[in-house]
Simulated assay, not measured.
Amino acid sequence: MTPALQAMGLQVSYGERVVLREASLTVPRGRWVALVGPNGAGKSTLMRCLAGLLAPASGQVSLQGKVLQAWSGRQRARTLSWMGQDVVADPDMTVRDAVALGRLPHQGWLGLPSDQTVDREAIELALQDADMSWAAERSWGALSGGERQRVSLARALAVQAPVLLLDEPVAHLDAPHQRLLAQVLRREALLGRSVVSVLHELPLALQADELAVMREGRVLIQGSRDDPAVHRILESVFDHAVAVSRVDGRWVVVPQF
């Protein structure tokens, strides 16, 4: 089956600094892939290439089997949803209006909604998934950092795209909302959507279907969360400061002091 999203041999440099070195990643349909690695590994740069926000010097990104650059802007926006870091909005914009921006790719000629009922349902579900329904009429400027992060997540979910890219989605989130995010992303994968998330929170990353472990601009390994080889590489890239163990039927990360 054709992957939902695929990167092949991506090379990116900033001046003389090489950030991605022949980086490759395959995102199967209906799977949640967690992208992990130490600071400076190239995770966010790889995500920006996957989203079409950054053109690599060499290599290629394909979306549903077609080269990313061959997609029109609207087609891409409907098919691939992006949540980046440090998203900002008009301080006076309501939470509901900010989330509604996720429906823009589905609007018709002259900006008229193609199906207002579908739009409303998508917005309400996204607010619920991000636990922000209670704040729908609040302004962006009145929100905390964690609440803004959840609104940004809701906006990405509202697109209801087949592919969802999330760069550090749990930044500023407390433990209950990290758990909620994991539940939502698992559900999205079960519904057939493909999810890629950059995560520094290794216990949360081990809830994904697959892990892709990066170091120094390369994807060293990609495989199931149950794969011992993935665990060994994961421990290695973090200089064995953590160990992956099985506790009560689930994988956990144990700090090593």
Rank of each mutant, 00 (worst) to 15 (best):
G102L: 10
S236A: 14
V67D: 15
A70C: 14
W134M: 14
V252Y: 00
L202V: 10
D97H: 13
K66D: 06
A171E: 13
V253S: 03
P203Q: 11
V219I: 13
M8R: 15
S44H: 05
V242E: 04
V27P: 06
R246I: 11
Q75V: 01
A135W: 10
V87W: 04
Q11V: 13
V99G: 10
M47R: 05
R148M: 08
R103V: 02
A41G: 03
L127M: 08
E137V: 10
A154E: 01
W140P: 07
P91K: 02
W32T: 01
T45P: 09
V61M: 11
P105R: 07
W71Y: 14
R103H: 09
L10C: 10
E235R: 06
R120Y: 08
R74M: 13
A41H: 02
Q6C: 13
D209R: 03
V88C: 14
T94Q: 04
A98F: 06
L166C: 00
A136V: 11
H106R: 05
L181Q: 02
A77M: 10
A212V: 06
V99E: 01
M93I: 14
H231K: 02
A208E: 10
D227S: 11
D119K: 12
M214I: 00
S139D: 06
P3R: 04
Q64G: 09
P162H: 07
G30F: 07
L35N: 00
Q60M: 12
L35F: 05
L234I: 02
R31P: 04
V36T: 03
L206R: 08
A243L: 02
A4D: 04
Q128N: 14
R17C: 08
M83D: 00
R232K: 12
L5F: 10
V159N: 02
R21T: 09
Q60D: 12
V195C: 01
A70S: 15
L153T: 03
D248L: 13
L190I: 08
L20D: 03
Q222K: 09
S24L: 03
L53P: 01
A41F: 02
D131K: 12
G141I: 01
S44V: 07
L173K: 09
L211Q: 05
G73K: 13
E16C: 06
H231E: 00
M8P: 04
S13H: 14
L173M: 10
P113C: 07
L35Q: 05
R148K: 15
H172V: 00
A241H: 15
G141N: 07
D90R: 04
G37I: 05
L20Y: 05
G30K: 03
I123T: 12
L143A: 04
L63N: 03
E201W: 08
R186Y: 00
A122R: 13
Q6G: 01
V118M: 13
Q85K: 03
A23K: 07
D174V: 08
Q116W: 14
G192D: 03
L157R: 07
R179Y: 13
G9Y: 04
V254C: 12
V87T: 15
S144T: 12
R74S: 15
V213D: 01
A122F: 07
V61E: 08
A142D: 15
L181S: 10
L153A: 06
S245C: 12
H106N: 11
H106M: 11
L53Q: 12
G146S: 06
W32C: 06
D97W: 01
G65N: 09
A161L: 03
R187F: 04
W82L: 14
R76A: 07
G9L: 07
L206P: 09
V18R: 14
R179P: 01
L181Y: 02
R76W: 01
E235Y: 02
